[in-house]
């Protein structure tokens, strides 16, 4: 993969060509094996798989300017889920450890159409665990990703061969210890190479690609500043303004695979953080009522299924890891 060439990878072809292409088939087989491996691992570890809601009165306010899809629910404005986050926290009232594979729809800004990493419709492997802190949950991410990649590599050598994906690329990953750096360290690193990264914001696309391209193994970026993430990422008790969250970044320039955090579960903090993120608490009524009565402290994460597939399969663009890809702003089946 080469980030120096400005030429965009090809856009999605029409469905017949895409679905009958050997490369698509191998990619989707890899995706299928990754998901099966995740289910094996998580179920064995005591997690219960729930079926996620698709619509609701409110959803993840998300970030980076993507628009939610409104639907008319018997005269009420409902939303298609942009992520399962609110339901993940609520689900801990039933089980201490849950996961789901959730469809998400986000009308991303048009500028993301050529990042190779954004789909307007995608899936997330969502995991939430009561009582976990960040160390526990990032440890789980490591073990889970190692299991998914190892199982898939061992099961599908012919598909990796067909795609020309050298599985030696996973040698470092399979050792199981991912790198860690704080957001502030990542900002400093980017600034030393002349990239003008805003210290108060998410690592921008270009900065993330730079860090990812330099890495030989996946790594976590932790401690994002408040103001870059949603109200549900918990603020540090000892370092105000710093969130107890993380992203997992793939090596080889593939970029972000996963986001996660310890969760805010204190009612007053959630309402305050809603204001800090410009949200109207009024519309989160069901969620706030639940939180006011108490939900368990937890930590969790969501792995972008198409992004992980793209990385493991070594594809140029994330849409190649979707059977029916929808790129921002592009009208397609």
């Amino acid at each position: 993969m080469n980030h120096d060439t400005p030429a965009a990878p090809p856009s999605p072809p029409e469905p017949r060509t895409h679905l009958t292409s050997p490369a698509t088939r191998s990619t989707l087989r890899i995706q299928n094996r990754l998901i099966a491996a995740a289910r094996e691992y998580l179920t064995a570890a005591g997690f219960t798989e729930l079926l996620p809601p698709v619509v609701g009165p409110v959803t993840d306010p998300g970030s980076r300017g993507s628009k939610q899809v409104d639907i008319d629910f018997y005269g009420h404005r409902y939303k298609l889920m942009t992520s399962a986050i609110l339901y993940k926290q609520a689900s801990l009232l039933a089980f201490d450890k849950i996961f789901c594979i959730a469809p998400n729809v986000r009308l991303e800004p048009l500028e993301t159409a050529d990042t190779d990493r954004h789909l307007a419709e995608f899936h997330q492997l969502d995991v939430e665990m009561a009582g976990a802190d960040r160390d526990r949950i990032t440890g789980l991410v490591e073990e889970l990703v190692v299991h998914m990649v190892r199982t898939t590599r061992d099961a599908l050598p012919a598909d990796f061969e067909l795609l020309g994906r050298d599985t030696d690329a996973f040698t470092e990953l399979l050792r199981g210890s991912f790198g860690r750096r704080t957001h502030a360290e990542a900002v400093a690193e980017l600034r030393t190479v002349g990239h003008d990264q805003n210290p108060d914001a998410e690592i921008d696309w270009a900065g993330e690609a730079l860090l990812s391209a330099k890495a030989g193994r996946p790594f976590f970026v932790t401690d994002y500043p408040k103001g870059s993430r949603g109200f549900y990422d918990r603020e540090s008790r000892t370092e105000p303004g710093v969130l107890r969250n993380f992203d997992l970044i793939a090596p080889e320039g593939y970029g972000e695979l996963c986001s996660g955090s310890e969760r805010t579960n204190d009612y007053a903090q959630i309402v305050t953080r809603m204001r800090e993120t410009g949200e109207n608490p009024q519309k989160y009524r069901w969620y706030l009522d639940l939180v006011r009565e108490g939900v368990p402290a937890s930590a969790g994460f969501g792995i972008g299924v198409e992004r992980l597939t793209r990385y493991v399969a070594g594809r140029d663009a994330v849409w190649q890891a979707s059977a029916f890809p929808k790129l921002p702003g592009v009208v397609s089946p």
Binding site: S63, R64, G65, N198, D200, A201, E202, D204, P225, K226, G227, S228, T272, R275, E276, T277, G278
Partner: peptide, 18 residues
């Protein structure tokens, strides 16, 4: 609004709409 709410809303705007 508090000072912190204003500060964080502005940062979020810069984050989301670079």
């Amino acid at each position: 609004f508090t000072a912190e709410i204003l500060r964080q809303q502005i940062r979020l705007m810069r984050n989301n709409f670079p």
